[in-house]
Write a protein that binds this DNA or RNA. Structure first.
Lengths: 229, 229
DNA sequence: ACTTTTTTGTGTTAAATAACATCTTTTGCA
DNA sequence: TGCAAAAGATGTTATTTAACACAAAAAAGT
């Protein structure tokens, strides 16, 4: 099991913002636990008591919409903090989170975070920056998901997964292996259409498919499909 | 013309976060100017040099998408700050802003804002809170715009305008008078469909229309349409 | 006041996509 | 190992929505 000390070491951006005494306060109350594949982390409507930090694994932030259809709004990669937005705006969660795969997550009570940012502007700036980046992405995503056609949205999602989770050593096989349903929920389409369009992309040699393993064969063409449709 | 001093007075949340000396620094460099109806405020790709503060009027934040179609991602009401997100994430603007109607906008150089938040945690918290609220709304909006059908999206937009800009004294006539094109860009549909669906809503006595003036006649039914489609 | 341009309104057609049905394959589990 | 359940694949149909065409009304310039 990973030690609290090591977790902070993996988060230089956060770690550096903390004074030695603050650091020990954090280490003292931090809790670490493992989540199984597909295990829920928090649900829409839950009260956000803790800030979470993904130490290893992959996490999706999603929203359940009309007719049981979910929309993935954001993905989290190790090592990254998440789950703090709702607490900062004094709301319950408007999204849910679940692990794509076996994951290890540290949690720090938001009450401590609030205490710390009131005294530590550098820590506050850390959150400002994270939130600002997330908001920019969210706005861009809104337009991509609403205006592009199926091919464009799926191509975009594949490139998004490459950017978010990277590739194997070959530089083109995606590290993220999502179910077709998750691919669909990421791309705002039905599972059938995700399956179909992935096959078409494979026929066109934009990608190759081996079960859930996706390999990007022609990234420029994929970029073009993402832009043009 | 409004004085800088008065502008700050209109922003209690920001004003209170400032120490007297910081306050004078802000007042010294703040500039105020008027924008005509439909005048652009900033464009996608511009460098965000200033934080903006809408003193009076109404502003839309939008993104130009595929085929000249724009998507309104957020609206600003007086008195509210905007245009700081990109600066905080160290990017150029990924959205554009324009005035819905004649507006007065104050600007404060981001360089000063950066200086202030490094010393003033309360000011930093102001931005954390604003960004957290905006991000939650953006995520919710993504799902509403992607999963709901036309009627649901338009009903949602009408309620969104009521919430954002309020109503006249009668409690049901929207203060915001948008063109059909803006209604469409807010609701992710073509102008034709916005016109058509507004007419249908009027026939169904959910709303009444007098040019651009929209009056909500049956809010519960509108809520239901927004949820169910 | 007249012309031009923009906005609004309406009908028709074509394209995109969801819904559904069915089958196969894979996976998990007793 | 074998069975049940889940995931993946594919074809068909129905629905939704965009695109287009055109007319009327309103607004804006000259």
């Amino acid at each position: 099991m990973i030690k609290n000390e090591e977790v902070l070491g993996l988060l230089p951006e956060l770690d550096h913002a903390l004074m030695p005494q603050e650091r020990s306060q954090v280490l003292e109350v931090m809790r670490v636990r493992a989540y199984r594949k597909n295990e829920p982390i928090y649900k829409e409507g839950d009260s956000p008591t803790d800030m979470l930090c993904l130490v290893s694994g992959k996490v999706k932030i999603y929203k359940d919409g009309v007719g049981g259809r979910a929309q993935i709004v954001r993905v989290i990669n190790a090592v990254e903090c998440f789950g703090y937005r709702a607490a900062f705006s004094d709301e319950n969660y408007v999204t849910a989170a679940a692990a794509f795969e076996q994951s290890v997550i540290a949690s720090i009570p938001m009450s401590l975070i609030f205490q710390l940012i009131r005294r530590n502007p550098q820590l506050a700036c850390f959150f400002i920056r994270r939130l600002a980046i997330a908001l920019g992405r969210s706005d861009a995503r809104t337009v991509n998901l609403t205006q592009k056609h199926i091919r464009g949205r799926l191509a975009e999602s594949i490139l998004f997964l490459k950017e978010s989770y990277g590739t194997a050593e070959d530089g083109c096989t995606l590290n993220a292996c999502l179910s077709r349903e998750d691919m669909a929920n990421l791309s705002n389409m039905t599972t059938s259409n995700a399956i179909r369009t992935l096959s078409v992309f494979a026929q066109e040699r934009l990608i190759s498919i081996d079960g859930r393993r996706i390999k990007i064969l022609d990234e420029p063409a994929l970029q073009k499909t993402s832009k043009m449709g």
